[in-house]
């Protein structure tokens, strides 16, 4: 008798478990969505209020819209390649690696942007204005998405090679992971759109 049958713990049918997990992840996405909403709200709030002309003071630095979209590109590629991997399970091994690599590249690029922010006043160390402050927050949240996304993508790559998973459950899990990848792409697009409105 193997340990697994000896220590029986009740398990539901794979599709029941799969659907449940997806609901859980979607609820967490709602929480994350509220966070992103809070940031975008703050961005436009401070921009429109422009207290003491301090949103983007004269001579302050800002990043062109293009840089925001450059960060989104890997998120979109990752979401698409995961979608394809879900549909096209024969090529899963290749496509899941594409997802992982694009997320890792995005992580690196986002980190690079953060490490080279141009907007801190040299002698005081203070951020030039509230635009600069908001940019930091949004980039940081993106970074969080990249890191969590990379973790999941790495797990999917590793597991596809090592673990025999019930095929029905696996289908559900890929959809669940897909919910997350799609969400971080959408959130990235929303943030890039937001930071397009500099002034």
């Amino acid at each position: 008798m193997s340990a697994d049958t000896q220590f029986h713990i009740h398990h539901d049918a794979p599709e029941v478990v799969g659907r449940r997990e997806r609901l859980g992840v979607r609820l967490l996405i709602v929480a994350d969505g509220a966070f992103v909403f809070g940031m975008i709200f703050s961005y436009f709030y401070l921009r429109n209020l422009n207290a003491n002309g301090g949103w983007l003071p004269k001579g302050a630095h800002y990043l062109s819209a293009g840089t925001g979209w450059l960060v989104v590109a890997p998120l979109i590629i990752a979401a698409l390649s995961h979608r394809m991997a879900e549909k096209n399970r024969d090529n899963f091994n290749v496509l899941s690696v594409v997802t992982l690599v694009s997320l890792l590249a995005g992580t690196y690029y986002q980190w690079h942007q953060l490490a080279n922010m141009p907007f801190i006043v040299h002698d005081t160390g203070i951020f030039e204005g509230s635009y600069a402050s908001m940019w930091l927050l949004i980039a940081g949240a993106n970074m969080f998405h990249f890191l969590l996304g990379s973790f999941i993508a790495l797990g999917l790559v590793v597991r596809a090679r090592r673990v025999q998973i019930d095929p029905i459950l696996q289908t559900w899990r890929l959809r669940t992971a897909g919910s997350w990848f799609t969400w971080i792409a959408i959130s990235g697009i929303a943030c890039a759109l937001t930071t397009t409105f500099v002034r």
């Binding site: 983007l56 600069a132 402050s133």
Partner: peptide
């Protein structure tokens, strides 16, 4: 709750990193 978390992260950054979310002198509110 996440909006509270946003406000606390902003507070943390204002307190540690010289951001200006809540500093009216530099465009905060």
């Amino acid at each position: 709750f996440p909006t509270f978390m946003v406000s606390m992260i902003m507070t943390a950054l204002d307190r540690t990193a010289n951001t200006t979310y809540f500093d009216a002198q530099f465009g905060g509110s």
